[in-house]
Protein backbone atom coordinates (compact mmCIF):
# COMPACT_ATOMS: atom_id res chain seq x y z
CA UNK A 1 0.00 0.00 0.00
CA UNK A 2 1.11 3.48 -0.76
CA UNK A 3 2.08 5.78 2.07
CA UNK A 4 1.83 9.47 1.35
CA UNK A 5 3.71 10.35 4.56
CA UNK A 6 2.39 13.80 5.26
CA UNK A 7 4.36 15.45 8.04
CA UNK A 8 2.88 18.83 8.93
CA UNK A 9 4.47 21.56 11.05
CA UNK A 10 1.97 23.35 13.28
CA UNK A 11 2.38 27.06 13.94
CA UNK A 12 0.51 28.42 16.94
CA UNK A 13 -0.23 32.12 16.87
CA UNK A 14 -1.33 34.37 19.72
CA UNK A 15 -2.07 38.08 19.16
CA UNK A 16 -0.28 37.89 15.82
CA UNK A 17 2.90 36.43 17.27
CA UNK A 18 4.32 32.96 16.82
CA UNK A 19 4.30 31.09 20.15
CA UNK A 20 4.71 27.54 21.42
CA UNK A 21 2.73 26.15 24.32
CA UNK A 22 3.28 23.27 26.69
CA UNK A 23 0.13 21.23 27.44
CA UNK A 24 -1.80 24.13 25.84
CA UNK A 25 -0.41 26.54 28.48
CA UNK A 26 2.51 28.90 29.07
CA UNK A 27 2.97 30.26 25.53
CA UNK A 28 6.62 31.04 24.78
CA UNK A 29 7.25 33.82 22.24
CA UNK A 30 9.16 32.58 19.20
CA UNK A 31 9.00 35.37 16.63
CA UNK A 32 7.16 36.41 13.50
CA UNK A 33 4.91 33.75 11.92
CA UNK A 34 5.47 35.11 8.41
CA UNK A 35 9.19 34.58 8.79
CA UNK A 36 8.58 30.99 9.94
CA UNK A 37 6.25 30.36 6.97
CA UNK A 38 8.95 31.59 4.57
CA UNK A 39 11.48 29.22 6.11
CA UNK A 40 9.07 26.26 5.96
CA UNK A 41 8.47 27.07 2.27
CA UNK A 42 12.18 26.86 1.57
CA UNK A 43 12.39 23.60 3.48
CA UNK A 44 9.63 22.23 1.25
CA UNK A 45 7.43 20.94 4.02
CA UNK A 46 4.41 18.83 3.02
CA UNK A 47 1.76 21.16 4.43
CA UNK A 48 1.34 23.72 7.18
CA UNK A 49 -1.22 24.12 9.96
CA UNK A 50 -1.80 27.51 11.51
CA UNK A 51 -3.70 27.73 14.79
CA UNK A 52 -4.71 31.00 16.40
CA UNK A 53 -5.08 29.96 20.03
CA UNK A 54 -6.30 33.30 21.39
CA UNK A 55 -9.66 33.52 19.63
CA UNK A 56 -11.96 30.76 20.92
CA UNK A 57 -12.10 32.08 24.48
CA UNK A 58 -12.04 35.74 23.48
CA UNK A 59 -14.98 35.15 21.11
CA UNK A 60 -13.12 37.07 18.40
CA UNK A 61 -13.03 36.67 14.63
CA UNK A 62 -9.74 35.88 12.88
CA UNK A 63 -7.43 38.73 11.92
CA UNK A 64 -8.10 38.52 8.17
CA UNK A 65 -5.47 41.00 7.12
CA UNK A 66 -2.76 39.07 8.96
CA UNK A 67 -4.09 35.78 7.59
CA UNK A 68 -3.89 37.18 4.08
CA UNK A 69 -0.30 38.28 4.62
CA UNK A 70 0.64 34.84 5.96
CA UNK A 71 -1.17 32.97 3.17
CA UNK A 72 0.44 35.08 0.46
CA UNK A 73 3.86 33.84 1.64
CA UNK A 74 2.77 30.21 1.69
CA UNK A 75 3.23 28.10 -1.45
CA UNK A 76 2.27 24.88 0.24
CA UNK A 77 -1.16 23.75 1.42
CA UNK A 78 -2.23 25.78 4.44
CA UNK A 79 -4.90 24.89 6.99
CA UNK A 80 -6.14 27.40 9.53
CA UNK A 81 -8.03 27.05 12.80
CA UNK A 82 -9.22 29.57 15.37
CA UNK A 83 -12.34 31.69 15.71
CA UNK A 84 -14.31 30.04 12.93
CA UNK A 85 -17.82 29.90 14.33
CA UNK A 86 -19.96 30.67 11.29
CA UNK A 87 -20.03 29.97 7.58
CA UNK A 88 -19.40 33.59 6.58
CA UNK A 89 -16.24 33.60 8.73
CA UNK A 90 -15.00 30.43 7.02
CA UNK A 91 -15.75 32.06 3.68
CA UNK A 92 -13.61 35.09 4.56
CA UNK A 93 -10.80 32.80 5.72
CA UNK A 94 -10.84 30.94 2.37
CA UNK A 95 -10.77 34.28 0.57
CA UNK A 96 -7.50 35.06 2.39
CA UNK A 97 -5.92 32.16 0.48
CA UNK A 98 -6.32 29.38 3.04
CA UNK A 99 -7.10 25.88 1.69
CA UNK A 100 -8.64 24.21 4.70
CA UNK A 101 -10.32 25.39 7.87
CA UNK A 102 -10.08 23.62 11.20
CA UNK A 103 -13.15 23.53 13.43
CA UNK A 104 -13.04 22.58 17.10
CA UNK A 105 -15.07 24.59 19.62
CA UNK A 106 -17.78 25.50 17.12
CA UNK A 107 -18.86 21.90 16.51
CA UNK A 108 -19.79 20.82 20.01
CA UNK A 109 -23.09 19.00 19.60
CA UNK A 110 -23.61 20.96 16.44
CA UNK A 111 -22.18 19.88 13.13
CA UNK A 112 -24.29 22.24 11.06
CA UNK A 113 -21.30 24.50 10.46
CA UNK A 114 -19.17 21.56 9.25
CA UNK A 115 -21.97 20.51 6.85
CA UNK A 116 -22.37 24.04 5.56
CA UNK A 117 -18.66 24.47 4.87
CA UNK A 118 -18.46 21.03 3.23
CA UNK A 119 -21.41 21.81 1.00
CA UNK A 120 -20.07 25.19 -0.09
CA UNK A 121 -16.34 24.47 -0.35
CA UNK A 122 -16.08 20.68 -0.56
CA UNK A 123 -15.35 18.05 2.08
CA UNK A 124 -11.60 18.40 1.61
CA UNK A 125 -11.80 21.98 2.88
CA UNK A 126 -12.92 21.19 6.44
CA UNK A 127 -10.97 19.49 9.20
CA UNK A 128 -12.61 18.69 12.52
CA UNK A 129 -10.09 18.86 15.35
CA UNK A 130 -10.56 17.03 18.62
CA UNK A 131 -8.32 18.00 21.53
CA UNK A 132 -8.24 15.47 24.35
CA UNK A 133 -6.51 14.38 27.52
CA UNK A 134 -6.86 11.46 29.89
CA UNK A 135 -8.96 11.77 33.01
CA UNK A 136 -8.06 10.14 36.34
CA UNK A 137 -9.48 6.81 35.17
CA UNK A 138 -7.28 6.86 32.09
CA UNK A 139 -10.17 7.58 29.70
CA UNK A 140 -9.44 10.08 26.95
CA UNK A 141 -11.84 12.99 27.22
CA UNK A 142 -12.35 15.69 24.56
CA UNK A 143 -11.92 19.38 25.30
CA UNK A 144 -12.74 22.58 23.42
CA UNK A 145 -11.94 26.30 23.75
CA UNK A 146 -8.16 25.76 23.58
CA UNK A 147 -8.36 22.91 26.07
CA UNK A 148 -10.30 24.74 28.75
CA UNK A 149 -13.79 23.18 28.47
CA UNK A 150 -14.39 19.47 28.96
CA UNK A 151 -17.01 17.84 26.71
CA UNK A 152 -19.23 14.97 27.79
CA UNK A 153 -19.46 13.28 24.41
CA UNK A 154 -16.98 10.44 23.70
CA UNK A 155 -14.24 10.93 21.10
CA UNK A 156 -15.20 8.10 18.76
CA UNK A 157 -18.89 9.11 18.49
CA UNK A 158 -17.66 12.66 17.85
CA UNK A 159 -15.53 11.41 14.98
CA UNK A 160 -18.43 9.45 13.47
CA UNK A 161 -20.65 12.51 13.70
CA UNK A 162 -17.98 14.70 12.10
CA UNK A 163 -17.63 12.24 9.22
CA UNK A 164 -21.37 12.06 8.72
CA UNK A 165 -21.53 15.86 8.67
CA UNK A 166 -19.03 15.98 5.80
CA UNK A 167 -15.65 16.61 7.42
CA UNK A 168 -12.78 15.81 5.04
CA UNK A 169 -10.21 15.07 7.72
CA UNK A 170 -10.04 14.49 11.46
CA UNK A 171 -7.26 15.99 13.54
CA UNK A 172 -6.64 14.60 17.02
CA UNK A 173 -4.48 16.49 19.41
CA UNK A 174 -3.24 15.10 22.74
CA UNK A 175 -3.18 18.07 25.12
CA UNK A 176 -1.06 16.32 27.75
CA UNK A 177 1.70 15.62 25.19
CA UNK A 178 1.70 19.10 23.62
CA UNK A 179 5.20 20.58 23.79
CA UNK A 180 6.57 17.67 25.85
CA UNK A 181 8.51 15.69 23.20
CA UNK A 182 7.50 12.47 24.96
CA UNK A 183 6.36 10.69 21.79
CA UNK A 184 2.97 10.35 20.12
CA UNK A 185 -0.11 8.61 21.54
CA UNK A 186 0.36 5.71 19.12
CA UNK A 187 -2.23 3.25 20.45
CA UNK A 188 -4.98 5.79 20.32
CA UNK A 189 -3.90 7.11 16.91
CA UNK A 190 -4.14 3.51 15.63
CA UNK A 191 -7.60 3.07 17.11
CA UNK A 192 -8.88 6.32 15.63
CA UNK A 193 -7.31 5.69 12.20
CA UNK A 194 -8.89 2.25 12.06
CA UNK A 195 -12.29 3.65 12.97
CA UNK A 196 -12.27 6.71 10.67
CA UNK A 197 -12.94 6.32 6.98
CA UNK A 198 -11.49 9.77 6.28
CA UNK A 199 -7.82 10.79 6.72
CA UNK A 200 -6.61 11.27 10.30
CA UNK A 201 -4.00 13.86 11.31
CA UNK A 202 -2.34 13.02 14.64
CA UNK A 203 -0.67 15.66 16.79
CA UNK A 204 1.02 15.94 20.17
CA UNK A 205 4.37 14.80 21.52
CA UNK A 206 6.44 14.20 18.36
CA UNK A 207 10.22 14.23 18.86
CA UNK A 208 11.37 14.80 15.28
CA UNK A 209 10.43 14.21 11.65
CA UNK A 210 11.71 10.66 11.69
CA UNK A 211 9.42 9.84 14.63
CA UNK A 212 6.51 11.33 12.69
CA UNK A 213 7.24 9.10 9.69
CA UNK A 214 7.60 6.07 11.94
CA UNK A 215 4.23 6.86 13.53
CA UNK A 216 2.66 7.05 10.07
CA UNK A 217 3.97 3.60 9.23
CA UNK A 218 2.88 2.10 12.54
CA UNK A 219 -0.60 3.57 12.84
CA UNK A 220 -2.10 4.11 9.39
CA UNK A 221 -2.78 7.73 10.24
CA UNK A 222 -2.69 9.82 7.06
CA UNK A 223 -0.62 12.62 8.54
CA UNK A 224 1.32 13.54 11.64
CA UNK A 225 1.48 17.15 12.74
CA UNK A 226 3.95 18.63 15.21
CA UNK A 227 4.77 22.00 16.67
CA UNK A 228 7.63 21.93 19.14
CA UNK A 229 10.10 19.73 17.30
CA UNK A 230 9.95 21.97 14.22
CA UNK A 231 10.54 25.23 16.09
CA UNK A 232 13.12 24.19 18.72
CA UNK A 233 16.57 22.63 18.44
CA UNK A 234 16.58 18.93 19.20
CA UNK A 235 19.47 19.13 21.63
CA UNK A 236 18.18 22.27 23.34
CA UNK A 237 14.42 22.64 23.49
CA UNK A 238 14.71 26.22 24.67
CA UNK A 239 16.67 27.35 21.65
CA UNK A 240 14.55 28.45 18.69
CA UNK A 241 15.31 26.87 15.30
CA UNK A 242 12.73 26.60 12.54
CA UNK A 243 13.56 23.20 11.05
CA UNK A 244 12.11 20.19 9.25
CA UNK A 245 14.28 17.38 10.50
Amino acid sequence: MQQLNRVIPVLTVLDGKLVKTKRFKDPVYLGDPINAIKIFNDKRVDELILLDIGLANANKEPNYQHLKEMASECFIPLAYGGGITQLHIAEKVFKCGIEKVIINSACVNNFKLVSEIARSFGNQSVIVCIDYKKNMLGTRVPYVNSGTNKIKQGILPWISAAEAAGAGEIMIQDISRDGTFQGLDLDFISAVSAKASIPVIACGGAIDKEACIKALQETNASAVAAGGCFVFKKNNRKSILINYQ
Binding site: M1, L4, N5, R6, D46, N123, G168, P199, S222
Partner: peptide, 13 residues
Protein backbone atom coordinates in the same frame (compact mmCIF):
# COMPACT_ATOMS: atom_id res chain seq x y z
CA UNK B 1 -9.81 -1.92 -3.40
CA UNK B 2 -7.36 -1.62 -0.50
CA UNK B 3 -9.35 -0.92 2.68
CA UNK B 4 -6.55 1.23 4.14
CA UNK B 5 -6.46 3.58 1.16
CA UNK B 6 -8.64 6.56 1.83
CA UNK B 7 -10.48 8.94 -0.46
CA UNK B 8 -9.64 11.72 -1.18
CA UNK B 9 -6.18 11.13 -2.52
CA UNK B 10 -4.49 13.85 -0.48
CA UNK B 11 -0.79 14.59 -0.31
CA UNK B 12 2.38 14.63 -2.39
CA UNK B 13 2.66 12.16 -5.23
Amino acid sequence: VHPDMKIPHMGWT
